[in-house]
Simulated assay, not measured.
Amino acid sequence: MTAAGGHDGEPHDPAMGARLNWLRAGVLGANDGIVSTAGLVVGVAGADASRGAIFTAGLAGLVAGAVSMALGEYISVSSQRDSERSQLDLEARELEESPEAELTELAGLYERKGLTPETARRVAEELTAHDPLAAHADIELGIDPDDLTSPWQAAVASAIAFTLGALLPLAAIMLAPEPTRVLWTVVVVLVALAIAGVVSARLGHSSARLAVTRIVVGGGAGLAVTYAIGRLFGTAVG
């Protein structure tokens, strides 16, 4: 039988799930940077704006997006971390006030996982002797007390992922010849989105074709809409 999180009998790495979550979040952050910045610069270019105006708009969008991503991630992870700490504090108080009841509860949890009452009790006693809080946090709360996510780490990682993604369409539209800058930017962005779709599918063990189709069609539609808005309102306002 394949171990959870492993393949072909390979031993399960407890940190693998966390690393995959970080990588998946990085791919999504980069995807956000690509799509939002591409939509912005293509929309501005649709209004026949100068290269300087496009660069200013793209850079402003990059900075604003990175800050927004970092702030959102910081707030989200901080809230999650506060909740986890609160649960751990409550569990620690219960262990201090009612150690025997907590031991019985832990054994019962292992029984429900399929262990015999005798084995479940022995496992609960050995884990409690080693680290009672970690034992309860693992099976009861799904939390590792020594591996709580850092809000600052999450914020910085999100900002970096978004920035790297945003630099791609910004560089494409600035380096491409003016008559074909929008076309080249669209091509570069759709290729990048296809790659992001493949990576996301591999991480999630899902269909790469379906993931690529969704992300490319969605991204292409978004670029078409922003370009049309730029053409429409750029001409109207001008």
Rank of each mutant, 00 (worst) to 15 (best):
G5A: 03
D8W: 07
D8P: 00
G9L: 10
H12P: 00
M16W: 09
R19D: 06
R24H: 07
A25D: 03
A25L: 00
G26M: 13
G26K: 03
L28G: 01
G29I: 00
G29Y: 02
A30S: 11
D32N: 10
D32H: 01
D32C: 09
I34E: 07
V35L: 15
S36D: 09
L40T: 13
V41N: 01
G43D: 08
G43W: 01
G46W: 06
G46Y: 05
D48G: 10
S50Q: 09
R51M: 12
G52V: 07
A53D: 13
I54F: 03
I54N: 00
A57S: 15
L59W: 11
A60S: 15
G61R: 05
V67S: 13
V67H: 10
V67P: 11
A70W: 04
A70N: 11
E73P: 01
E73A: 14
S78A: 01
Q80P: 00
Q80A: 09
R81P: 03
D82K: 08
L88M: 14
A92H: 15
R93Q: 14
L95V: 10
E96A: 15
S98W: 14
E100W: 11
T104K: 12
E105V: 02
E105M: 12
A107E: 04
G108Q: 05
L109R: 09
L109T: 01
G114P: 12
G114C: 07
T119M: 10
R121Y: 05
R121H: 12
R121E: 13
R122D: 10
A124V: 06
E126T: 08
L127S: 02
T128P: 05
T128S: 13
A129G: 15
H130A: 11
H130P: 00
D131G: 06
A134V: 04
A135V: 03
L141G: 05
G142W: 02
D144P: 01
P145Q: 10
P145D: 14
P145A: 11
P145L: 12
D147S: 14
T149L: 11
P151E: 12
A159C: 10
A159S: 15
I160C: 09
A161E: 05
F162G: 02
T163A: 15
L164N: 02
L164A: 12
A166S: 14
L168W: 08
L170A: 08
A172C: 06
I173Q: 02
M174V: 04
M174H: 05
L175D: 07
E178M: 13
R181E: 13
V182G: 00
W184Q: 05
T185G: 15
V186M: 13
V188A: 14
V189I: 06
L190F: 12
V191C: 14
A192E: 02
A192S: 15
L193H: 08
A194D: 10
I195L: 14
A196E: 04
V199Y: 05
V199D: 03
R202C: 05
L203V: 00
H205R: 13
S207K: 05
R209K: 06
A211P: 00
A211M: 11
V212A: 07
T213H: 02
I215A: 03
I215K: 07
V216L: 09
V216M: 11
V217K: 06
V225G: 13
Y227G: 01
A228S: 14
I229T: 09
I229V: 15
R231G: 13
F233R: 02
G234E: 10
G234L: 04
G238R: 14
